[in-house]
């Protein structure tokens, strides 16, 4: 379906275009991840839905809280975190899995990461569509700041792409980087505002932490866009976007400088 939607757009560009290459790589990546399985694209949904069911049971039924639309509140945060987590973990394998292309054909290796991100982004879009469906059937409304959603998406894209690239370069050079990254993802999962509102941090004296972990502001602003009754933190929107741009530029610099080393070490 995505293919038929994007084909007319791609055909607008001239032939021998990088866009076709990037799109093809993203398409096969996505296809490999979902279509080769019996349940196909449903797997993209099963993971976050299972987690929502567990956390909803724990935090809403066993430990009741005051949060309105708690399932949607959780869903909106979880899908962005899971997409980041999967994006960076799979991103760490890009140079390893695509070595067969790197060694045999001359092309711009960064295209591999652009297509990887496109594939992860397609999975995220699918989850956002599922979120909107749940939102409609549960009778909740969109947030007041929906127009800012592209900025939040862009920030997420830049941050995820940057860490995918950095971890991807480091993985073949430093063997235990993935253990370290898994640990960070586990910590991040609990301290990135998936379960709490931003005021929980501020009221308990951890306001400074909003400037350390960009995901707190990002997830808060996702909710401001996608779920009614949530406030947009404009200064965090800009701060996170700036962080995304800077870390992305750093990752490109590191990629240009060390990707060769990473390939040699495999």
């Amino acid at each position: 379906m995505l293919n038929s939607l994007l084909k007319p757009i791609i055909s607008l560009f001239p032939e021998n275009n990088r866009l076709e290459r990037i799109w093809k790589l993203a398409q096969v990546d996505f296809k490999k991840r979902y279509y080769n399985n019996k349940l196909g694209l449903l797997w993209a949904l099963i993971n976050p839905l299972t987690q929502i069911a567990i956390y909803y049971f724990v935090f809403n039924l066993l430990l009741p809280n005051q949060q309105e639309n708690f399932a949607l509140f959780l869903f909106s945060g979880l899908i962005f975190w899971i997409a980041f987590s999967q994006g960076t973990t799979l991103g760490s394998l890009v140079l390893i899995q695509k070595k067969y292309l790197i060694e045999n054909i001359q092309f711009q290796w960064l295209d591999l990461y652009i297509s990887h991100m496109l594939s992860v982004f397609m999975g995220l879009l699918f989850n956002i569509a599922a979120y909107l469906f749940l939102m409609i059937i549960s009778g909740a409304g969109l947030g007041d700041y929906i127009l800012y959603f592209p900025v939040v998406l862009l920030t997420w894209f830049l941050v995820t792409a940057a860490f995918s690239i950095i971890i991807g370069i480091l993985r073949p050079i430093i063997e235990d980087v993935m253990h370290f990254w898994s640990l960070l993802l586990m910590i991040g999962f609990w301290v990135s505002g998936i379960f709490f509102t931003i005021t929980n941090y501020i009221d308990n004296g951890f306001g400074w932490f909003l400037h350390v972990n960009p995901f707190i502001g990002m997830i808060q602003n996702v909710r401001a866009c996608l779920l009614e009754g949530n406030e947009l933190y404009f200064h965090l929107l800009l701060e996170n976007l700036a962080f995304g741009i800077i870390v992305f530029l750093i990752s490109i610099f590191l990629f240009n400088r060390y990707a060769h080393l990473s390939i040699e070490k495999q």
Binding site: E20, L25, V28, F107
Partner: peptide, 18 residues
């Protein structure tokens, strides 16, 4: 991947248009 997909991936990376 199938031969079909591999032909398209390799071809696209080699700079051939779809």
């Amino acid at each position: 991947l199938s031969a079909r997909d591999n032909i398209y991936v390799n071809g696209a990376i080699l700079g051939l248009s779809f």
